[in-house]
Amino acid sequence: MKISFTLNNERFSIDVIEDMRLLDFLRDELGLTGTKEGCGEGECGACTVIIDGKAVNSCLVLLPEIDGSEVTTIEGLSKDGELDTIQKAFVDQGAVQCGFCTPGMIMSAKALLDKNDSPSDEEIMEAIEGNLCRCTGYYKIVQAIKAAAENLRNTNGK
């Protein structure tokens, strides 16, 4: 089946294997291994990517379903070798331990902050409730997202 989509700002128009999950396409066909597989059933959020502005589990998306969509993965965030604001905040705040949950966590944070750069603690917790972290206890992750929001507000001149 031939489909067209945008991935990390690059246009694709290609023949794809129909019964493949988006997650496997990213990791195995394109070598974009930043997106992780934890549970494979929508429970852990390690596979989170953004499709048309919304955070989704790429383990629950069939590849043909992205036809006509705009997809962003963790690899699409840094520019010219420089980390983006959210990535930087995670590093600065020590919100990364083993790092397995981090790409998914950052994509959920990005989906939130792209719409709302002044989220409350509650809104932050809700945005990452589908992302499991076994290391950090979430506190530093929430701090990192708050710090990123503040940096975004500063650069947006608010």
Binding site: E18, D19, R21, G40, E41, G42, C59, L60, V61, L62, P64, E65, D67, G68
Partner: peptide, 27 residues
Amino acid sequence: ILAGGTDLLVKIRLKRVIPKTIVSLRH
């Protein structure tokens, strides 16, 4: 039928559903 896939894809993975054709509502 495939709508959001949040039940169907889990069932396919667990082999509780073995489809021949998936009919997506996407378009």
